[in-house]
Design a protein around this nucleic acid. Structure first.
Lengths: 346, 346
DNA sequence: TTTTTTAGTGTGTTCGAGCACATTTTTTGT
DNA sequence: ACAAAAAATGTGCTCGAACACACTAAAAAA
């Protein structure tokens, strides 16, 4: 039943040599109809599963996987990804796989393109990309496609038939989750949706979250709330945001669509007499600090570490164990408050 | 730097044979001080990591791991565990590991003990147990210990120096999480903590959750709430519970410490004019249905599937890759509402 | 009929670790 | 000094898949 058969076993059973069995299994070379039938008969009865260990031992081909993501020194948001990739490296170090990480400057499309060129020069078997820049990504993917390099993406979704896989989160639904939590904290009043970002590279990201957030309130017909959208940059938060709070005395809640909730929380902490509910994204240290202080009510965990890990590991398992690469992996939308945060911070 | 060295490489570098290198690495047999020094010199310079694939190919020892858990046909709560174990079986089927599952009747300590005896007769290398019965577990673990069989546990924590590892959740903290959510839904009124269970086998489980739940309200000095504890059995829910609701007109919220929230929700759905917040455990189908209907507000996901998977996989990796078995793995306390539930249901 | 081609089949080596066994070297005892 | 024992070291086989190569037999060409 669960006995493990080897090629040798099959050969003996079919009364041929292991070479012939091998030829049938990989349909290479010529095999007589007689031998083919005998072997197929055996294969139909037993359930042959090649020993992946033995296969991998013999396999001298070294697979190269390149990962491209923004420099975590420029944006610490990407730090967990590095850990996730490190996990994958550790896990697969025994196998003939090389996993290399490349960083680009998230503020520069040029840097993105030039680092891609650098990767292409390495002629990898596959790449995992955080496609921050939509247009440039579509462009560069053509090149990968021509070179028959498998392209996986994570964090940002880019539509392209050349992309084998995407690992990320349903942003629209994560907006809805945030809305459902906000609706639990508040009963009425004004809610601001704040987008904080230097450039527009996260535009789609942020819009999807806003859509989901607004859709929840529309759908539930929660007419006691009024929703406002506000766009801020790092540089003008300290001036524009306090003014906004001043102008909107009925403001009760804020949904921050990026990982910069701590910047809002920091400003709010200096404004007395205003209790405003905050919901943001990502368990970066500063956010968790404000969560523990009670200034941030909920964080939505996007689990970038696991995103990056899965992005790499599905590729490795594809090469080593011939597993299918899943087209999309949507990670759960983890709801974090002060009580369960410690279990998610790795 | 990252070059992979083989025993043969080391032998050549040290000017000895691979046999001698092997003896040094495993300190078996006699080696002259001269040879030892030469080999150690080489080992200090390079970073030798044995090829686990090759090691495993050669290794003819078949490891046997037995898993013991309640029959999922008697209590569907355990169904996800079976899937988790199945995942592990699939993942490691290439290796020389046999993973066998045994069921016992969760209502019978006798069944628990006799199934354990059955497992012992298989003389496994390790077991993973859901130790539902505390006293009997302590008893049976002695036997495993004498036979030098590694014992891992999951779901229920049992203190014993003979237990190598525990995979589960911090129940006290999960109670706190539930409390924090309840505090968000309600502003005041009576809250019932309901324990639903046939026997007392989950007593410690439920008590821990209650402690955490109550502690949260105590700590925050939320004096607008009053907390009551109610113990129910499957058989008397339909009579006792409606009476309880009747008697307590100020009842606003219920925290169900087991996975039977659906039974409470079912009764509540037939009682008109009472809006009572429900928080329970586990994403079993019936619970998720009530979550979608809006009768259950939050579920806490205990992720039994992953518990079982990790319980097995840490053992397998210990045998195959000589990894350490972590003493305790506490899974995150996932907060589930109607908006994010779909991502957790596997 | 003999030679050449090709279809069909089997044998042997490789991957790296692990271990049994054989061989060589050194030490001990007489 | 020489045999015997002990210590040290080297050799060779195994695990299972993969593939190169060698070989046989039958068919095609000369």
């Amino acid at each position: 039943m669960d006995k493990k058969y080897t090629i040798k076993d099959i050969a003996k059973m079919a009364g041929v040599s292991k070479g012939t069995v091998d030829r049938v299994l990989h349909n290479r070379g010529k095999v007589s109809p007689t031998a083919l039938e005998k072997i197929n008969e055996v294969l139909n009865v037993i359930n042959y599963e090649p020993n992946l260990i033995a296969r991998n031992l013999k396999n001298t081909k070294v697979y190269r996987i390149c990962v491209l993501l923004p420099d975590p020194e420029i944006d610490t948001y990407w730090l967990p990804c590095v850990n996730g990739i490190q996990d994958a490296i550790t896990e697969f170090k025994a196998y003939s796989v090389i996993i290399e990480t490349y960083y680009f400057n998230p503020e520069s499309t040029k840097s993105f393109l030039s680092t891609n060129e650098k990767i292409i020069r390495q002629s990898p078997d596959a790449v995992l990309i955080a496609p921050l820049f939509h247009k440039e990504t579509v462009e560069i993917i053509k090149q990968y496609d021509e070179l028959e390099i498998i392209v996986n993406t994570f964090n940002n979704q880019v539509e392209s038939s050349s992309i084998k896989s995407f690992v990320g989160q349903d942003l629209y639904k994560s907006g809805r989750v945030a809305a459902s939590l906000m609706n639990l904290i508040l009963t009425d009043g004004q809610i601001a949706i704040i987008h904080i970002d230097e450039s527009l590279k996260n535009a789609v990201h942020m819009q999807e979250k806003e859509k989901g957030f607004r859709n929840y309130f529309d759908e539930k017909k929660l007419s006691d709330f009024s929703l406002t959208t506000l766009k801020l940059k790092y540089s003008n938060i300290e001036t524009k945001f306090p003014a906004f709070v001043e102008e909107n005395p009925n403001l009760r809640g804020i949904f921050i669509t990026t990982s910069k909730a701590y910047q809002i929380a920091s400003v709010l902490s200096s404004i007395e007499n205003r209790k405003i509910a905050l919901i943001g994204y990502d368990l970066i240290e500063k956010n968790v600090n404000f969560l523990n202080q009670g200034l941030v009510h909920f964080l939505i965990h996007q689990n970038q570490k696991r995103q990056a890990y899965l992005g790499v590991s599905t590729l490795v398992e594809h090469f080593l164990f011939r597993k299918e690469i899943p087209e999309t992996i949507l990670l759960p939308i983890d709801i974090i408050n002060v009580e369960n945060a410690s279990f998610y911070v790795s």
